[in-house]
Every structure is written in C-alpha cells, then in structure tokens.
Design a protein around this nucleic acid. Structure first.
Lengths: 221, 221
DNA sequence: TCGTTGGCGATTGTCGACAACCGCTAATCG
DNA sequence: CGATTAGCGGTTGTCGACAATCGCCAACGA
C-alpha cells in the first residue's frame, strides 16, 4: 500500500484553497503570512510556499512588500473562467468521444447517475459537488495529463465562482437534463458532436450567470 | 515612469526558465538547490521559490527529499503540448476574429511581416522567435487575461519543445505560407473560420513532429 | 495652502541553520 | 544463503532572525 504523505506546505495549500473555494474567505480578504503561520501552527516559509501555489492557481494576488489578498470577482472573471473552461472541456470531450472504452462508458454513467441522485435529493451542496464531479470526471477520462493538470486549477477557480454565485442567486436548473446531451454526444463517439455539446452547455451557463450577475448589480445599485 | 523591479526570486525564475527552454539544461538534468544557490549567489529559499514556479509551469519535476530534475521529453509530451496549445489558440483566434479593431489588424500584420522577414533572412533562431512571437501576439490580442496567463506557461513549454526538435530535425517549412491562412481567416472576422484555420495549423505541425520523432527513434534504435 | 520630506509601523524578501527523509550499502541474523 | 535492518551521505523540508520595502501621516517649508 502506497501512502501519499503530504508535506506541511502541501497541506497548508489544500487547506487554504478549501477556505477560499468554499467561500469562507471572502474576495478581497487580506492574508498575512505571520497570521496564517500562527493559525496553522507552522513557519512562515511554509505558508509562503502555499500562498505562491495559490497565486499560480490565480486564486489570490500578491502585492510585493505589501501583502496577499483573495482575488476579487468581477463580470470579466466569470467570462474568462467560463470561456477557458469551455475550451479545455471541448478538447477533453473530443478526446474521450474519439477513444471510447467500456471503462469510460461506465465512469461517465456513474458520474451522470450521481447527478441524477443529487438532483433527486435536493441537497444544494451535493448538487454542486456532483456537477463539478461530472466535469472533472470527463476531463480526467481524456488521458491527457497536462490537460488534467491545467483543468485541476481551473476547476477550483470555477468551483469558487460556482459556490459564490449559488450564494447570490441559487439556480434551480435540472442537472440531469442539463447534462444529458453531453453524455449522449460523447457516448455517440462523434468528437465533433461531443465538443459541440459541451460548448453549448458552457455557453448557456455563462449566459445565465452573466445575466444573474448583471441583475445583482442592478439591484444593489 | 513606472519601473518594474523584480525580486531575486523572480529573476532566478526567469534565468532558470531560459536555461531550460533554450536547451542549455538537457531533459533529465538534476538540479540541486544548494548548487543553484551558490551559482546564482543567492540563498536557498530564493532558489526554492523559483523551482516551485517552474514546477507549476511543468518544466521541471520534484521528488520529495530527493531532488529536482528537468522534465523528460517523450512523444506524449509533444502530443499533449500541441493539443493543448491548439485548444487555447482556438479560443484566442475565435475571440480575436469576433472583435476586430484597427489596432488588432496592425498588430497581426506586424507579427506576420516579422515572419516573412525571418523567413527571408534564413536565420534559424529568428525564425523560431518570429514563429513563437506570432502565436503569442495572436493570443494576447484576445484581451483574455486568464488565457494569456495560461498561454504564457504553455508557450514556454512549447518553445522548449520547438527548439529541442529543431536541434534534432531542422525543418524547412516556409513560415509565411504556413501562417497566412491563419491571418486571412482571423482578419475575415469569421470566428469559426479562424478557429478552424489555427486548428489545422496546429494539427499538421503536430503530425509533422510526431513523424520526425518516430523517425528519430527508429534511427537511434 | 499645497507639495515635499522624513519617520514609523507593518509586511514581505532573503538567508543560513537544523531537522526530516530517501536511497543505498553493508552488516546482521534466521 | 536470503531477508531484514542499521547506518550513512545527500537532499529537501521547516523554521526563525534580520534586511528591504511599502503606505501612511505628520511635520516642514516655499
């Protein structure tokens, strides 16, 4: 049995990322190395490494000699993250559709069933988790390590925005019917159709969120 | 006048990246923090930050408690990098074609003219630089910060592979005619056509390189 | 009054020392 | 003889101390 032993720095990274992604650290929050170090019971160098990693994932920003802060969320942030995700998932869908195996079909079905169950349960947290899990599963099935790496960071950022927007305008889209076209297109084995399906999916979710974001702005103005 | 003052860590990152990308550090080369620190005349923490950054860019790999090493290059590395680049540039081409301005036309023309001049000069280094510059210009014209960020790291990796392959099998493709379809398609203002053009470009360069790579393997076997 | 300058508190940037860990070799023990 | 283990050299992992820099505010002078 191979046990993966994470360093303090890696654990600090995971912990801080979770804090941000799950919304416990609001956008704009300032982070100071010493505070985090004392809170985590670790040294400053360790925290520093974790912060640098999160900066590479574009979740926080650094101002030299001044401090770190959780990134702000703007309409452009939404647009950029959604379009980028669309491009990466398009590649993934294309690859998966072009190299179907029994394992892939099973994994996709499992991810989709989780969606259905989450929808049936009505549990908001599980709905989000199942949604994100479906997309992550699809990407990881592509057998493209670099893509999976890139997508890991991007999906965290996406999860952050997703949970943030769910707090501001809970949506009641039916997850199953929302994702079925993707599953169908990918399993059809047609790369073009698969890419088209995931793009339509991405574009309409972007449109929805931008609309809701604008609505939010208008109300608070 | 705003002067951008880089920290030692950032300069070390740039320096090490250049060493790798330009082929002065062969794939598989081991890197030890203390050696680098003494060579660069800096402390180990600084080098460590630089190495972590390069690991995030996927140019080097870390083995805990053991050491760092320049990544190896395999056929899969080529495939992954080319396909990923294709996906990102596809998004960029689509965006640029959909939002043409005079500045964009000028910048694209300038980048293309540099290609023509590089081809005419016959200078190998300048040919590579002009080729990479053209693609970077296109992506940065998309006005998509996250995309530019991601592409920055990817284009460095690509440059690394490009220069590496040029050392093993110098190609004599005509850069101007090779890239003209992209310029034409983007400037036509049709996002679909632009994406199609850059995809064909990427796919055929991948095919060429994979063929040459296989040839190289066959000869050395 | 307004712009400049000097100092101050806060935070990061850098560094070297020590601890933890890995891979290997050789000694040990059944 | 084979498997286990103890030790060793080498490298990274972690930490706290000190230096460099930034933003701010108040004192100062034209």
């Amino acid at each position: 049995m191979k046990i993966e032993k994470l360093s303090f720095a890696d654990r600090a990274t995971d912990l801080l990322r979770a804090e941000i992604v799950q919304g416990r650290l609001a956008p704009g929050t300032r982070l100071t190395e010493i505070d985090l170090a004392t809170q985590l019971g670790t040294g400053r160098g360790t925290v520093r490494a974790a912060l640098a990693a999160l900066e590479a994932e574009d979740l926080i920003v650094k101002q030299p000699y001044t401090g770190w802060a959780v990134r702000d969320i703007s309409q452009k942030t939404l647009w950029e993250t959604y379009t980028l995700r669309c491009a990466l998932e398009g590649l993934a869908a294309r690859l998966v559709a072009g190299a179907l195996t029994t394992e892939i079909r099973d994994a996709l079905h499992a991810a989709f069933q989780r969606l259905e169950q989450a929808e049936a349960s009505g549990d908001g947290g599980e709905r989000v988790a199942a949604d994100l899990g479906f997309h992550r599963t699809l990407v990881n099935l592509a057998g493209h390590d670099s893509l999976s790496r890139q997508y890991f960071a991007l999906s965290n950022k996406f999860e952050w925005l997703y949970r943030w927007s769910e707090n501001h305008w809970p949506s009641r889209i039916d997850l199953a019917s929302w994702h079925r076209p993707i599953v169908d297109a990918v399993l059809s084995g047609d790369p073009d159709a698969a890419e088209r399906a995931i793009r339509e999916h991405g574009e309409s979710s972007l449109a929805d969120d931008l609309r809701d974001f604008a609505e939010l702005r208008r109300q608070s103005a």
